[in-house]
Amino acid sequence: MLEFRNISFHFPTKRNTIDVLHDVSFTCGEDEIVAVVGPSGCGKSTLLSLATGLRKPTAGDILIDGRPVKGQNRLIGMMFQQSTLLPWRSVVENVELGLEIRGEPKSFRRDKAVTLMRQYGLGGFERKYPHALSGGMQKRAALAQTLAMEPEVLLLDEPFAALDAQTRVVIENDVVKICRAGKRSVLLVTHDISEAISMADRVVVLSRRPGTVKEIFDIPFSRGAKSVADVPAMPEYATYFKRIWDALDISVTGMNETAA
């Protein structure tokens, strides 16, 4: 379980201090997918880097299973927006990277990586280099890399933004399936309301900077859907979309602020 308790984050610049996040609190329970949406620059990605320990909150606590996050944490895995596959390593070497860092023996990590790759439809591509893979396959490899370490909490930073619509649905379904099967806490940052409703159990709406929690929506209906692609056709979808859209309040004045 991942818990944000009264998180504030200020970013000092040469001239002044930027308030990125202000008093943000919410939890992401076990076997739960929570999506964070908000206007660009509202600090939603910052939330993730705070959860990984890459940055420290100015105020507040982040807890995983009740214990505060201090520096690196084995329980956390993150999928970044940009590709984090190392171009000089073959795909299988990339998938086993986390285990290698942990000092797992070679045969163990290789077996695990190969098994995961087969599971995620990457069988036969072990010795290829990342650039030889399609965008969707690269994402699946990155997912396999993250999941090889069996994180309890999975952080996803707009990982599907660069994918084409079809591939995106396939990967989104994979992620939902994998997360449900592993009873993980999943925190997904996205700017796509539709993706948030389709994948998540709850949607946290952040305000413009400094980001505060505006509203939290329970999405009770999408969990039963066979595919994330079916969710927009469900009768409740439009209502939730409208409510979240209104909460986001992306007015013209808001768009003038530059993205951070």
């Binding site: 890459l54 895995g77 990277l97 860092i101």
Partner: peptide
């Protein structure tokens, strides 16, 4: 920077 961050998150 992302590559460095990614490895750090993996515990490097």
């Amino acid at each position: 920077r992302t590559l460095v961050d990614a490895l750090w998150v993996m515990g490097a």
